[in-house]
Nucleic acid binder design. Structure first.
Lengths: 343, 343
DNA sequence: AAAAATAATTAACGCGCGTAAAATTTAAGT
DNA sequence: ACTTAAATTTTACGCGCGTTAATTATTTTT
């Protein structure tokens, strides 16, 4: 190390004894130069610490090695987890992830896509809001940049979608709940922005029919991303007014369930499948905090890692093949039943 | 809108009738051109949608308008919240935030600083690990880039630090606990990487002495960021073996408390300050989920917004003054007692 | 060892923009 | 209207790197 600072590739060429075009080749793909020169470059690199100017490198590229990652809300541990997995996958494949949160706001999602456009990313991994997303803006964006959506889909848009099989998941937990006690009612928000919510409702209806029980859906008002609060306030109301037809409630997602559990606790009701329990509550997603609720939440686990890795690898495939997919790919991973004490 | 795509500032100069150097001035600071020309530019802009090439713009700048934001772990809602606040402050001030998570790994923190360096940021907002951080790497980084640390400090390093006044906060809750019941024991991890933990322990000792009670500190083993699990497992052990000297436990942070609450629930112990309760548990931080625990967690709220905004504005001040601070600034915000049912 | 194939070097141009200097236009002040 | 000051235009160069074409050096093949 030491010596004077290397200011540009020209100077590094001088100290390393390698010509600039060869260095340029090396930095774009280390394997594109002869083994011996690669080694010479790398030893020089180890004692001079030069790195090409990111901005100069990308200035004339039509596409950079950046990959945009857009999630609806980083404050939701589900997305921070899956965002992390996606980031790691990008780094492992030699891309630079740029993580953006839409902060629960579809307008921000659009703004994020706009700023990404300026960064000329090689591709984008997008977890959209769904119906609340600006469909037109996303369509336009997809025309310019390869996009793989995950978690939630915008019907028919983008190269591919990777998510969870809600029908399989819901059947799994409905079957379990019916088998082990009273059949579940379904609890959700009236105007869910997330398309998974709609699929889950539909799946619930079908599963209940299949098992020969009457479905009961309870939709409560509430906006935004304060799911726990809505679960607590509105779920609490339903519990205390005896609105639920059975003693078992399947929530559209874990965060609603977490809120409802806290409401039940406030009401002095013991939740779970034990003898002294008066009701059962189940969720969906296996939120990171679900194992620490009181009682721990029975839920359906999504395979975060599988979804993230498949979404990423699908995007890489599209980028590297330089051609758009013949037709839209949909990959759905199965959920796993996580049995805990709440149901 | 419409017409053909504008490829560069030259072409935009042609269609807008403004010379390129003036356009360049405008894009660097819209207020630096005459009002009338600014309006002409903006109407042209509204019907041609041209944006300067980010990479070309930054290529020759010694400093960009980017601001790096590095947090230890985005999966922790505390940091995703405060990260969000910081991002907003940056955008409002006309900077571009780049959010990076160190994923609970000090080596990643160092890697994040390295990649930030390549982006020539105007400044960096860093929430370090503390003792676990690579002090040398951070010092070196601070020599090249203005850095304001927040949440946790690396003693003596960087331009400024913004955080919570742990001594004031802990006094507040210790006073409350002593006044309203038995004096608290203190529960924490044996090897906390976060310097706040050490300050909090110290503050606990001092507060107990001030109030004339004997302090009791319980340190449990455990690594990493699975605070809830450690709180549940190790805290549960302490509870069930009757290790706590009093019926009141002050946890070093909310996530440990959340874990301990779940352990208490498992043990069938009612927590809170009601008549039928056998123990009290309190936390620190006012974690977003703390109001939905069972029972809701009594805790000390940090002023996320104030910390984020002060950290950001301090950094902007340093950047815009173009001079390093005469001496290191420390700003500590007071915590607020949040009384809920758990203590 | 000569021929063929592969890799590296030299020389040179362009990308989109920042920026400086000199010339020119526009606005402000009296 | 005339002087000054301020803003804009013209002209021109440079930044750090990608990239290409022609040349030279190195390795592989037979």
């Amino acid at each position: 190390m030491g010596q004077q600072k290397i200011r540009n590739m020209e100077e590094f060429a001088a100290v390393s004894g390698i010509s600039r075009p060869t260095l340029s080749k090396y930095f774009n793909d280390p394997d594109s130069v002869r083994r011996s020169t690669r080694e010479r470059i790398e030893t020089a690199l180890s004692q001079h610490d030069y790195r090409p100017n990111v901005y100069a490198v990308n200035q004339n590229r039509r596409k950079t090695r950046n990959i945009g990652v857009v999630v609806p809300n980083l404050a939701d541990p589900f997305f921070s987890e899956i965002g992390r997995e996606v980031e790691l996958a990008c780094l492992a494949a030699g891309y630079s992830p740029i993580l953006l949160s839409s902060h629960g706001n579809p307008a921000q999602e659009r703004a994020n896509l706009d700023s990404l456009r300026a960064l000329k990313p090689a591709g984008v991994l997008l977890a959209p809001f769904g119906k609340a997303s600006d469909r037109g803006a996303i369509e336009r964006f997809c025309r310019d940049v390869p996009v793989v959506t995950f978690d939630a889909t915008v019907e028919g848009v983008c190269e591919a979608f990777v998510g969870t099989d809600n029908f399989q998941s819901v059947e799994l937990i409905v079957e379990y709940l019916c088998r082990s006690g009273e059949p579940p009612c379904f609890f959700e928000m009236k105007t869910p922005s997330n398309p998974n919510a709609n699929k889950r409702r539909q799946a619930y209806l079908e599963a209940m029919e299949r098992h020969g029980f009457a479905p009961h859906i309870h939709q409560v008002p509430g906006e935004g991303w304060n799911f726990e609060e809505i679960g607590a306030t509105e779920g609490g109301k339903l519990i205390s007014t005896g609105a639920f037809e059975t003693d078992t409630v399947l929530c559209s997602n874990d965060r609603l369930a977490i809120g409802m559990l806290s409401a039940a606790y406030e009401l002095g009701l013991r939740v779970g499948h034990g003898k002294d329990c008066v009701m059962r509550i189940a969720g969906q997603d296996d939120h990171p905090f679900s194992r620490y609720t009181c009682p721990p939440l029975t839920t359906i686990a999504q395979d975060y890692g599988a979804i993230a890795n498949r979404a990423a690898s699908t995007l890489f495939r599209i980028i590297e093949s330089e051609t758009r997919l013949a037709e839209r790919e949909e990959t759905l991973f199965e959920g796993k039943l996580v049995m805990r004490a709440s149901a």
